[in-house]
Simulated assay, not measured.
Amino acid sequence: MTKPAAENGTKSAKMSARGVKVFYGEKRALHGIDVDIYENEVLALIGPSGCGKSTFLRTLNRMNDTIDICRVEGLITLDGADIYDPKLDVVQLRARVGMVFQKPNPFPKSIYENIIYGPKLHGLATKKDEFDAIVEQSLKRAGLWNEVKDRLMEPGTGLSGGQQQRLCIARAVAVSPEVILMDEPCSALDPIATAHIEELIDELRENFTIVIVTHNMQQAARVSQRTAFFHLGDLVEVGNTEEIFTNPRDERTQGYITGRYG
């Protein structure tokens, strides 16, 4: 098992992984991941296709539970509590650790209904004025309010691709999560929509902890404070983004960043 290079600093972690292994049947996809995720930071996960970065992202809110042949070993904590504790309510976990997927996936409902679905499910509001406030605040946080405030009852699926992705981000923040996971949120978007999402990620960091999987190294450099490089199921190296891109400590990181493989 390859251990990542050690990090400096004494920040307290919002989430931590220790010795995390993931198996799909007999195949081992992750080989023992150790990493801390700090509050109000963007941590970018980079690496070649099939290296395990999305698999690891899915362990952080137990999305892998939906795959019958998947088994997770090791310890993952949120505020020090084991998220794989059998007594833990997975629905509540996913309210605290939200997910934005690669392809925008608004519900086949109105923009308004997309936003209030989570708060209604979790009992965060009961009155119309409370729901109205959540919709407005969430859409403002996602930079979408001014574009859709006069069409809240229209289908979310009628928005452009970039708007749909911001709607999905608004839907995620509507339940006031503490951590937002993003799995290549810009890969299906054009450059202008991508720039909107990147600006949004930077603004959201003030209130949320964000972990983003990206194949775009320029994007990782732009949006993240720390970067983790995965390779063949190992977490090779994690640290300050600028240092990872300018002075990596492992030759595999250097090889990937300079385009020798990946």
Rank of each mutant, 00 (worst) to 15 (best):
S138K: 12
L139A: 07
A172N: 02
G158H: 14
G143Q: 02
S138V: 13
E136T: 06
G158E: 07
G156Y: 04
W145A: 11
Q165C: 12
A142G: 14
E154K: 15
S160T: 12
N146H: 13
A170P: 03
E136G: 12
I169P: 01
R141S: 14
T157F: 05
L144S: 09
L144C: 09
A170S: 07
V173R: 07
G162Q: 01
A170R: 08
R171W: 06
L159M: 08
S160I: 08
S160L: 12
K149D: 00
K140N: 01
A174S: 15
G158N: 13
K149E: 03
N146Y: 06
T157S: 15
V148G: 13
A133T: 14
D150M: 12
R171G: 13
P155Q: 06
Q137K: 15
N146T: 13
E147H: 11
G143D: 00
S138F: 07
G161K: 10
Q163E: 12
R166Q: 08
R141Y: 05
R166H: 10
P155L: 13
A172D: 03
S138P: 06
V135G: 08
E147N: 10
E147V: 11
E154C: 11
G158Q: 11
Q165N: 11
G156W: 01
P155T: 08
G158V: 01
Q164W: 10
Q137L: 07
A133E: 12
C168Y: 02
R171K: 13
C168E: 00
N146L: 06
R151S: 15
C168N: 08
A174K: 06
G161P: 03
G156P: 05
V135E: 00
L144T: 04
V148P: 03
V135R: 05
S160K: 12
P155E: 04
K149R: 14
R151W: 01
L152A: 01
R141N: 11
A170V: 09
G162K: 11
W145T: 03
C168D: 00
T157Y: 05
S160G: 14
A133I: 04
G143R: 01
L152P: 00
L159R: 09
A174I: 01
R141W: 02
V135Q: 05
V148I: 09
S138M: 12
C168I: 03
W145M: 09
Q163A: 14
L167S: 06
L139C: 06
R166G: 10
T157N: 11
A142T: 01
G143C: 02
Q137C: 05
Q137F: 04
T157P: 03
I134S: 08
Q163C: 12
L139D: 02
M153Q: 10
E147A: 15
K149A: 12
E136D: 04
G143S: 07
R166W: 05
P155W: 05
L144P: 02
M153P: 00
A174F: 04
P155A: 13
L144N: 11
